[in-house]
């Protein structure tokens, strides 16, 4: 399981967000360059249509591969009351021929993306990961070098934390309280319910930049 919230920010304020995150987390950012391939089951395969993501970390000297399955979100009144999405998520590190295997099993490439940006991993009531990335699409199959932004000028911010059925409410609370610190720059909400950019972003960014001694 994982707790997750998402938001968007204008690229011009990303540097300010990075300064804020750096201050809040006390750790250095990690560069992010992930090739994400979404595979869907072929017609008739499976009791239900299924979807699985194959992620290739291009930032490593030798690219590493992960299979990720994102399941349904938790439902019910309890889930509605919390401001983060709680969903099942299972990951497995795999060898590099994973695409060949899934194609042989009858899965087809639905779409692919390239996420470029940075991430912070830190402990704050839960093991939290914040990623800030521009989402790019490929004009030619697997051509990650020629990727172009899906939404120019806008970057995606995602805050996630692993959770279990025993501790998800504490993890959700930890994620929510962390998100409040980012509120002047961006608003984070459950995936699929985007609230757009926040009006205070420009002023908050300017203030952060001047506090950090960065001249723009």
């Amino acid at each position: 399981m994982e707790c997750v919230v998402q938001g968007i920010i204008e690229t011009q304020h990303v540097e300010a967000l990075e300064i804020l995150l750096q201050g809040l987390c006390g750790v250095h950012r990690e560069r992010l360059r992930i090739h994400e391939l979404c595979l869907k089951s072929g017609p008739n395969l499976g009791l239900v249509a299924s979807e699985v993501r194959v992620l290739c970390d291009l930032e490593q000297p030798e690219p590493t591969w992960i299979v990720r399955h994102i399941g349904g979100a938790m439902r019910g009144s309890g889930a509605e009351q919390i401001s983060v999405l709680v969903r099942t998520m299972v990951e497995s590190k795999v060898s590099k021929n994973v695409l060949r295997l899934f194609y042989a099993l009858g899965y087809r490439l639905d779409h692919e993306l390239l996420r470029v940006g940075f991430a912070f991993h830190f402990q704050r009531g839960a093991s939290i990961t914040v990623t800030v990335s521009s989402v790019n699409k490929m004009l030619k199959l697997h051509a990650t070098d020629e990727a172009v932004p899906v939404t120019p000028g806008i970057q995606l911010v995602e805050v996630t934390a692993p959770a279990s059925s025993e501790n998800y409410s504490e993890v959700a609370a930890a994620v929510s309280s962390f998100c409040e610190y980012l509120a002047p720059l961006l608003h984070l909400s459950k995936p699929g319910t985007s609230t757009g950019v926040v009006p205070t972003a420009a002023a908050a960014a300017a203030s952060l930049m001047s506090d950090a001694g960065v001249t723009t």
């Binding site: 089951s41 395969l45 499976g46 299924s50 399955h69 299972v90 990951e91 497995s92 590190k93 060898s95």
Partner: peptide, 15 residues
């Protein structure tokens, strides 16, 4: 070669 959690992913895919 995969982490053993791949078995859980296969179960969830139901394919």
């Amino acid at each position: 070669e995969a982490d053993s959690s791949i078995q859980m992913i296969m179960e969830k895919l139901q394919s």
